[in-house]
Design a protein around this nucleic acid. Sequence first.
DNA 1: CACTGTTACGAACTCCGTAATTATG
DNA 2: CATAATTACGGAGTTCGTAACAGTG
Lengths: 78, 78
Amino acid sequence: MEFHQLKTFITVARTGNVTKAASELNITPPSGSGHIKLLEEEFGVILFTRTSRGMRITSHGELLKSKANDILTASNPV
Amino acid sequence: MEFHQLKTFITVARTGNVTKAASELNITPPSGSGHIKLLEEEFGVILFTRTSRGMRITSHGELLKSKANDILTASNPV
DNA sequence: CACTGTTACGAACTCCGTAATTATG
DNA sequence: CATAATTACGGAGTTCGTAACAGTG
């Protein structure tokens, strides 16, 4: 679990769209897709269900979203 | 700022010793020293004063210690 | 066929560990 | 001279982006 993976995850969760999230973060869709995949492999859960329209967050994803927000909030500059 | 850098930082802060911290973390002293150095460069502050006996944390270091604890606590598994 | 995510893969970059160096009591 | 940190540097591993592929309304 790395900070940039969590940032990608949060952005995908908000936009429901890997392509748009990648664009916001100035990375490419394959890179963003890889971030999500690595998180899913690390935790052994599916974070999003893939549809032809985009990404729908799962209940496991919601749990991580809460945790990720806590972490990123704590890491904000003073 | 990366998780493993924060873990190294916290361990050095606790032990006052890069060599001992590195040993606990199963890394080498140059690696641990590099983690501290990168954090200092990223934030533009000195986190420890170097003595021939080891590392003494500075006031800036104390601030990061508090923040690092919050982040690592938030990142603990559920 | 337009738009989505993913896979393949090569290049660039990063990070680690070994070895050598510096500093101090 | 023992102990601690740091620097130098080469190799290993990671991560990125481009290009190609696959699925769906």
